[in-house]
């Protein structure tokens, strides 16, 4: 992988704080445009945005474990006792 020193400046740092809000569509249109314009010309910030987006997306797709049979049985017993 090609690497380099990130020539980050105040602009990068300011937008870096807002990347999650950008991913979640919680920013106004003008700020979104600023971010889009900035990352087009700043590969390190673009890499940061893409890795953050993928991280959030992966979390959303983690599969659920099944409920252990013992727990289901305990809950049923508890509910029977509560509702009689």
């Amino acid at each position: 992988m090609i690497t380099t020193t990130h020539p980050h400046n105040a602009r990068c740092l300011d937008l870096f704080k807002k990347l999650s809000e950008y991913i979640d569509q919680e920013l106004d249109a003008a700020t979104c445009r600023q971010i889009e314009q900035h990352v087009k010309n700043c590969p390190p910030c673009q890499a940061c945005l893409e890795t953050l987006k993928t991280t959030a997306g992966l979390c959303h797709r983690i599969e659920e474990a099944p409920v252990p049979t013992g727990l289901s049985d305990r809950l049923k017993k508890m509910i029977n006792e509560l509702t009689v």
Binding site: M1, T5, P43, T51
Partner: peptide, 21 residues
Amino acid sequence: LPGDEAEVAREIPRWTTIPLD
């Protein structure tokens, strides 16, 4: 934050280009 001296990727990492599933 990437430090001034830190080496950071200039390419989009490959793992972000693979479909999440």
